[in-house]
Design a protein around this nucleic acid. Structure first.
Lengths: 164, 164
DNA sequence: CCTTAACTTCACAAATTTCTGAAAGAAGCG
DNA sequence: CGCTTCTTTCAGAAATTTGTGAAGTTAAGG
């Protein structure tokens, strides 16, 4: 036990469900959204499968699936507690900001599809032009987002001190 | 007729389905994704309900639903052809770049949920700190994305000339 | 006004997704 | 090694989402 003591479980749950609902609206599946929100709202920033299962009223199987997905998209990392078969799932702020903006893999595939479209519809056609411009937009975004994240690191240090 | 003549419908369809698949993966519903992709790939940048229905092999009802959604999230605009009950649906590049980045409404609601979380979990708790930092991140993003779009306008003019 | 073309709404069938319980699979510990 | 604890996998039930046909609405054009 670690996290729950001394906190109002009602308040936690209210936040978790509300924030998860927003994530769902943005396209994340429900269970991963709830798991992620629960981690964000935990004091330690890490919870075990059992804790998640109890807090969210969900079967261990459900947690397992959600966690698998979230770690695939780098929104959490798994850690093994030394000398125990319990696993903890943790959010690293850095990591998840990256994941959020770092749609890099996705953007890359969009770009591929667009390049192919330009080629097959003809670069000189009106549609080809539109696709080419969209492609240029993505290429621009890709670069600029990376720079934005660097600016954020600076800003964060300003706001919260350099408590890396 | 306008768009299809002289183009390889196969090639168009291939692009539409591939690009739509990427949009789906990013969280858009299937039908809106296909409609949107078809518009992007059209020479005129605008299609009627009937054209979409035929090209995508989908009932008018399906098109109607997709179009309603897309116009709600500002990814297309509707225009009435003067003196006809036909309606055309159009992508404006500007508009859709905005829509893509302008998750503004979404971000705002995230921020609301986070602010509430900070308040109810306590700004001095570890969880409260984490939420506060996440909130700061979103506030930063929100501002910086707006600036990024301005930079894109400049870049676009460079690349394509000022063919507003 | 009446007809007809174009789009929308709605109830429902079909397909898909989500979550569970049960069983199997790892890994610490004696 | 075997026991125990924790996690994962998997088949299927339940819930949700998606797209359709049919009926309804709106507005142009006679």
């Amino acid at each position: 036990m670690s996290d729950v003591a001394g906190r109002d479980p009602e308040a936690v749950s209210r936040f978790v469900e509300r924030f998860a609902a927003q994530l769902v609206e943005a396209g994340l599946a429900r269970m991963p959204a709830r798991v992620f929100a629960a981690l964000l709202a935990s004091d330690s920033g890490a919870l075990t499968s059992a804790e998640l299962s109890r807090q969210l009223q969900v079967s261990p199987a459900g947690v397992s699936g959600a966690v698998r997905y979230l770690s695939q998209v780098h929104m959490l990392s798994r850690e093994r507690e030394p000398g125990s078969r319990r696993e903890r799932y943790r959010v690293h702020s850095d990591q998840w900001y990256q994941a959020l903006t770092n749609r890099e893999a996705i953007i890359k595939r969009w770009e591929d599809a667009l390049r192919e479209g330009v080629a097959s519809l003809g670069a000189e056609t009106p549609a080809g032009h539109r696709l080419a411009e969209t492609l240029a937009f993505f290429e621009f975004i890709e670069k600029d987002v990376a720079e934005m994240m660097e600016r954020w690191q600076v800003r964060r240090a300003e706001l919260f001190g350099d408590e890396r």
